[in-house]
Design a protein around this nucleic acid. Structure first.
Lengths: 198, 198
DNA sequence: CCTACCGATCGGTAGG
DNA sequence: CCTACCGATCGGTAGG
């Protein structure tokens, strides 16, 4: 049988990651100390190091949990039934939902990737690349001429990711425009704008 | 009369800022030390502190020099002759040119604003706000229905800034798509996409 | 008496 | 799970 402490081991690990995501999002990875994190968690630095071997390891956990969710959403949208336009709309909405629901993790993913050591960084980058490639699949389905002009595919995909990733700097979920409304605006901009490119 | 050393005072100040921009862009403001900066400049830390009172002051100079150039470009585009579409196209091209020409400063502006103390931070934020407002003026001229639905103006402007600001994470000026080509793609996406929004 | 600049080191704090 | 503590390095400043 598991010991008493082992029972809530995962919950404690997850609680630390959540607080770390918030702290890293607010002050940056380098600007936030393990002592800050321990205080936020109402424990000691040593306890934090009992659950994670290093500060970078916590950063990796923050990022991978979020990027894994993005990969899942992208895979589900690509595999779904319906027209390319319908599945792309779903993708944009799901991305916005994840961005808002995990705003701190998302901000950390976008701001502090370079503070990860080379190997774990590559793991995250591979997942990001997967998200991009799945999105590109949908874009080609939607606009076949992107398959003809392959050199335009990546820039168009990046125009899209720029539109929605940039939200982390300004978007307020409780503001006048809801996440769903903004997702539909980004979707409309992409759908109508894509025909004007080239 | 000015002394011999005083003559190149401004050049030395500028050289420090340029190296600082590159260093801050590569490692982040907190990840780069004054010792690193001094080494890059082949001088001592004391020399750096002779030209700037603090590390934050250097960061401010890096940012303000760049954001001032953005404000100037936006003002010129708004004041130029020609249709709204022509002036917007000019604006997008000028922004991309500045982003590429001052890539390090641009990256620092986007990544390290929160590392500035409150007062200088507000100064930069005011200039950024000015860039956004000038761009919004052009967008309203281009698409009058944005004047009717004011709540859509800011999100549309942010869709645009997302498209071009996001380039700092992926765009390679020497790649298959040139800065001018990408600027025209972003412009086309905006021009055609804007009609699809609402 | 000034500005320009150096080698050495300050008091504190970081991750571990 | 804590206090005590480390080697190193931080931003900034001393005397000359």
């Amino acid at each position: 049988m598991a010991r008493k402490q082992a029972a809530d081991y995962e919950q404690r690990r997850e609680a630390i990651v959540e607080k770390a995501a918030e702290l890293f999002a607010k002050r940056g990875f380098l600007g936030a100390s393990i002592a800050d994190l321990a205080q936020e968690c109402r424990t000691s630095k040593s306890l934090v190091y009992h659950y994670y071997p290093s500060k970078e390891d916590i950063l990796f956990t923050v990022m991978s949990s979020h990027v894994d969710a993005l990969v899942e959403a992208a895979e589900a949208a690509v595999a779904a039934s319906g027209s390319a336009a319908e599945r792309l709309r779903r993708l944009v909405r799901d991305f916005m939902r994840l961005y808002v629901g995990a705003a701190a993790r998302h901000k950390v993913l976008l701001n502090d990737l370079d503070n990860l050591p080379e190997q774990p960084r590559q793991t995250i980058v591979r997942q990001q690349r997967r998200v991009i490639e799945l999105t590109e699949q949908l874009l080609v389905e939607l606009e076949p001429k992107l398959a003809q002009k392959r050199e335009n595919l990546r820039p168009v995909a990046m125009l899209f990711f720029g539109m929605i990733n940039w939200t982390h700097t300004w978007f307020q979920p409780a503001g006048r425009v809801s996440p769903e409304q903004f997702a539909d605006m980004a979707y409309a901009m992409l759908l109508h704008g894509i025909s004007g490119v080239d």
